[in-house]
Design a protein around this nucleic acid. Structure first.
Lengths: 149, 149
DNA sequence: GTGTCTGCAAACCCTTTGCAATTTT
DNA sequence: AAAATTGCAAAGGGTTTGCAGACAC
């Protein structure tokens, strides 16, 4: 996990201004380090910075995305989620369509297929922040033992 | 492409009531057969059924999804899109994050990786309606020849 | 006839935006 | 001092919902 301080420095280095709000938001994200929703960040960050506004979170996230420091997760379920980009640990997200749980696997499993797709179509898959939808182990088991509908 | 009539029959067989609205919506989807948005269906279906309401589209889509006849596409860009499920031609969607274009490739390329993931984690990827984000050939080329930010 | 579906309008939720005041550089 | 960022409140856009009437079964 990257520490908040380093992240703040990175943000400044990339030409963004560092405000208390941005620091707290960044530290919150670094601390939670998962697949966080805007609301989750809001609740936690506001404890440290009471006046903090949701709009600021959205705008900060936009900046962080421009700075290439976070990734948005593609998903049709639930609200928008994002995660800190971690160059040391690229991974693929497995989103369960039943329980919304998010698992991670290394990108290596998918890498070969991705290269094949690129060779065939020229399409370059964002392998470092890929989101695959399906059923987690538990929900898949439940599905098998349940009548549908 | 599956014809509207067959689809209507399928819907009835699955225990849903068949109304003029549902027929028209279903036929519209079958006719457009791509990756359609709710609004697109609304505009086209309303030409044949002037009083048609958007809420009905949403509710119908919900039913069609329960019936397993359409799939929602996972994407963080753009609005929600869905497509008719076609058992004869399962495919993976490649969504370009720059131009929003959607390409399709057969599932076979991904299948091996998917099986590997399932073996390792128990997570069952929805291989038949998978959405992968990245850059299409043209946008990838543009990216390579352009300064960032 | 019963239970489902529709249209309408309002509500909802998440996200974005305009603006004046504040803060960072 | 100049330029960027914030808070606030209002608007925006897509999606959902309550309800009374209409309709499929």
């Amino acid at each position: 996990m990257t520490c908040g301080e380093t992240l703040v420095a990175e943000l400044r280095r990339k030409g963004f201004r560092v405000t208390p709000q941005r620091s707290v938001i960044l530290e919150t994200i670094a601390h939670k380090s998962g697949h966080i929703s805007v609301h989750e960040v809001y609740l936690e960050a506001r404890e440290r910075l009471p006046g903090l506004n949701v709009a600021t979170i959205y705008r900060t996230l936009e900046s962080l995305q421009k700075a290439g420091m976070i990734d948005l997760l593609a998903s049709d379920t639930d609200v928008a989620r994002f995660s800190l980009r971690d160059a040391h640990n690229p991974h693929t997200h497995l989103v369960c369509r039943e329980c919304n749980q998010i698992l991670e696997v290394g990108t290596d499993v998918i890498a070969r297929s991705a290269r094949e797709v690129e060779r065939d179509t020229g399409f370059v898959i964002d392998i470092d922040h890929l989101t695959l939808v399906g059923l987690c182990k538990a929900c898949a088991a439940a599905e098998r033992s349940m009548p549908h509908r």
